[in-house]
């Protein structure tokens, strides 16, 4: 792991109407780091993730990706600012809970869309890379299938290949397994673990505790719009300092699908 900063978010505020979802959040993600964001629903974790690539515009604060800073206090609609935001988005790929594959395109077309139409790579090269990425997530034989013909787990793996095809600095995962049946989660989690093993920088919002323990370099716990705790997974799960975290982890383990938590708490 190097000490280069991949993403730096400073003083993020976000409100939806009367609801203040983020109240002054700072987050730094270094290159090669895997940061897992956890927290109860409504704590602002998804909003934070979506602010990192400006899919959601913070009301205040700034985002820096690889030395390029977008400030959210000045004028919003300038051409230069829009270009800067696009530039940041190219560098921060996103994997969504609902996959959001393009339904009118095949798996391969989904993967090569960004490389051809955003990164302007030659088509033949993009196809070559796209096929390699589909192989990497184990979907070579689904190359020419449309999303409607794929299982949820396969769709999410195509989405991961699509994200990789942008050669991003960071991949942001927004609850990548929450829309999947339990038996399909493992294949997606495995694909993400493989990326971690290859040193991919990732920010992952998830409720998968066993997975977080295994893959995270750092766990960020959010509650009511604040970051309450940033901790290594071993400390976070075995010896949480904060009572809010302890009750959250207890709740997660009571709710069934995370038996591995018993030993943690």
């Amino acid at each position: 792991m190097t000490d280069d900063v991949a993403i730096h978010a400073q003083g993020l505020h976000k409100r939806f109407g009367d609801l203040e979802v983020l109240k002054s959040v700072d987050l730094t993600v270094r290159s090669g780091e895997v940061v897992v964001i956890m927290g109860p629903s409504g704590s602002g974790k998804t909003t934070l993730l979506r602010c990192l690539n400006l899919l959601e515009e913070p009301d205040a604060g700034s985002i820096t990706v690889r030395g390029r800073t977008v400030s959210c206090s000045g004028p919003r609609q300038s051409r230069g600012r829009r270009r800067l935001i696009r530039d940041i988005r190219v560098r921060t790929a996103m994997v969504f809970q609902q996959f959001n594959l393009f339904p009118h395109m095949t798996a391969l077309q989904n993967v090569i869309e960004g490389p051809i139409h955003v990164r302007r790579l030659p088509r033949s090269y993009a196809i070559e890379v796209g096929e390699r990425l589909l192989a990497r997530v184990g979907l070579t034989d689904k190359r020419d299938e449309h999303p409607a013909r794929l299982s949820g787990g396969q769709k999410q793996r195509v989405a991961i290949a699509r994200a990789l095809a942008m050669e991003p600095e960071v991949i942001l995962f927004d609850e990548p397994t929450s829309a999947l049946d339990p038996e399909l989660r493992a294949e997606v989690l495995q694909a993400i673990k493989n990326l971690a093993a290859h040193g991919m920088t990732m920010v992952i919002v998830t409720h998968e505790i066993a997975f977080a323990r295994e893959v995270a370099n750092r766990v960020v716990f959010m509650d009511k719009g604040y970051i309450l705790e940033e901790q290594s997974p071993s400390v976070f799960f075995s010896n949480p300092a904060n009572t809010r975290i302890r009750s959250f982890l207890r709740l997660m383990s009571d709710s069934g699908p995370h038996p591995e938590l018993e030993e943690a708490s």
Binding site: D87, A93, N100, G114, V118
Partner: peptide
């Protein structure tokens, strides 16, 4: 067209017209 489609395209840095 689902909002997620706009977001997926936007998150890869596509312009509005594209």
């Amino acid at each position: 067209v689902e909002k997620g489609q706009w977001e997926a395209a936007g998150s890869m840095g596509m312009t509005y017209s594209r």
